Simulated assay, not measured.
Amino acid sequence: MEQNLSLYKIFYTVAIVGNISKAAKELYISQPAISKSITKLEQNLDTVLFLRNSRGVLLTEEGQILFKYLDSAFSTISTAEEQIRRIKELDIGHITIGVSTTLCKYILLPYLQKFIEQCPHIRITIECQSTNKTLQLLEDNKIDIGLVGKPHTLKNIDFHSLGEIEDIFVATDSYINHLKMREHAEQNDLFKTATLMLLDKENMTRQYIDDYFINNNIEINNLIEISTMDLLIDFAKIGLGVACVIKDFIKEDLKNKSLIELPLEAPIQKREIGFVFSKAVSPSSSVEKFIQFYKNYNN
């Protein structure tokens, strides 16, 4: 088929105008060159495509079949070219972002709101799952960007930090007072006696906190696993137990004292969050716009 591609355009033009001389003017090539190309195409296909007469040419039955499919093909090409032109003119594009539910709500949304105002024609798809799953999707080239806690290894990944977050333990003041009364527990024993609420084990935050417990020999007896940070906060506010949450996400609750931060003998080290990109894939123009946007956003 490849050897016929240039010949198809000539055939298609001749079929439309119905005359070799008119087709020559249309294509800016000589009449002999047109005739030679038609003859070559007929030889390649081993069939007759045109019937010649004094007024021009007519399609044979085989020529009509070829014209039908070429008409559809050239129409599809024209549609594709028009779509590309619109993409260029309107800055249309598509970005797929992987992010956990927590980081999506508290970190990503403000970026997206401003980005969409600047680039309204770029379509955004959000893949909400754990950080570990986001990193796997990035490695598999199924997403363009990830918003995650900084991974232990940055192999084949570009990491652009957005700053640090701090994990803390919180509860209502009444829950702590009732616990002390009921269990006669001192501050240092609260983790042994309290109902502790953590994210499930698929979450990187949970894995980070589990490492903290192990490194500090902290024993846990009563544990409830919760699927989202929002539910952790809500359950803590109704006095169900002690929740491990991200401090920046409950500033108002700490300020109005609906939740109280529990002091720790060994503070939990802050950790970085940021956008990640695969080094193995060249970013699209839409992704490059997003990269430039958040860099300017943070300056």
Rank of each mutant, 00 (worst) to 15 (best):
R55N: 14
K279W: 02
D167I: 12
I34A: 02
K279G: 01
I34S: 04
K105P: 00
Q83W: 11
D91E: 15
E82Q: 14
F249V: 03
E183H: 11
N177M: 10
Y294I: 13
L51C: 05
I87C: 13
I10E: 00
E166V: 06
A194H: 02
I65C: 08
L66R: 02
E139H: 13
E166D: 13
N299P: 03
N217K: 15
K105E: 14
M197S: 03
E166S: 14
A24D: 05
I291D: 00
R86C: 10
K180G: 02
T172F: 03
L66K: 08
L190Y: 11
E117G: 05
K257D: 11
N156M: 04
N156P: 04
I126D: 03
L49V: 07
I84A: 11
D189Y: 10
D210W: 05
T195G: 00
A15Y: 04
H94F: 11
I116V: 15
I87E: 15
D173H: 13
K257H: 14
L264P: 03
Q207W: 08
Q187S: 13
L231G: 00
S282K: 11
L240W: 11
T60I: 06
E272C: 04
K68F: 12
K247H: 11
K25V: 00
V170K: 00
P151C: 08
Q269Y: 05
K257V: 05
K142W: 00
K150N: 06
L254N: 08
I268T: 06
Y111T: 08
T79W: 06
E202S: 13
E2P: 02
K251Y: 10
K180F: 07
I168D: 01
T228G: 06
G93E: 05
I273L: 10
N19P: 07
G146Y: 01
I116D: 07
Y294M: 04
G239R: 03
L137Y: 13
I246G: 02
V48F: 09
C128R: 15
K105S: 08
V14K: 06
T96G: 01
K88W: 04
E261K: 11
Q113L: 12
L199A: 08
V245W: 00
L232Y: 07
S37Q: 01
V245Q: 01
L45T: 03
V281I: 15
C128Y: 06
E81F: 08
T205E: 10
L138Y: 03
I157N: 07
F213G: 01
V14D: 06
R86P: 00
L240A: 13
L198M: 10
L137N: 09
N19S: 09
G149E: 10
A194C: 12
Y111R: 05
N156I: 02
E272V: 06
K155S: 12
L240M: 15
N221H: 15
I97H: 02
I226L: 09
I260F: 08
E127D: 12
D253V: 03
F277R: 01
G163M: 10
P263Q: 07
P283N: 02
